[in-house]
């Protein structure tokens, strides 16, 4: 499944991997729910690690940080290790993803 708007694109075709691109600035954490649901659907069916590539997410607001945290808690609940591929070239990613990494020992942030 691919969710595409003028601001962002969420590619969720591979059963073990999603790619998010663009600027994520939705008004509330709950506004992210329908867009992240395909990712949750994939995680729910997995035992192996799931990877989310966010290296091309240029902006994320604080509602989006909470939404990502909710995804991490969802993976934790289903005991599916999560790998998030991030980029140090984008300022918000380095610090925020390092903070999110503290939420769960089976969340791995890989800067590529």
């Amino acid at each position: 499944m691919i969710i595409k708007t003028d601001e962002y694109r969420i590619e969720c075709i591979d059963p073990t991997r999603a790619v998010i691109i663009g600027s994520l600035r939705l008004p509330t954490p709950s506004a992210y729910e329908p867009h992240f649901k395909p990712i949750k659907d994939k995680i729910e069916k997995l035992r192996d690690p799931y990877t989310i590539n966010i290296t091309k997410v240029s902006y994320l607001n604080s509602s989006g940080i909470t939404a990502f945290a909710n995804l991490i808690f969802f993976a934790k609940e289903h005991n599916v290790p999560l790998i998030m591929e991030a980029s140090k070239a984008i300022p918000w990613q380095e610090k925020t993803m390092s903070s999110l990494e503290k939420l769960w020992s089976h969340l791995s942030i890989q800067f590529i």
Partner: peptide
């Protein structure tokens, strides 16, 4: 602080 905030879930 960060962990407590995201655990609250926003809204």
């Amino acid at each position: 602080f960060f962990i407590k905030q995201v655990e609250k879930g926003g809204n």
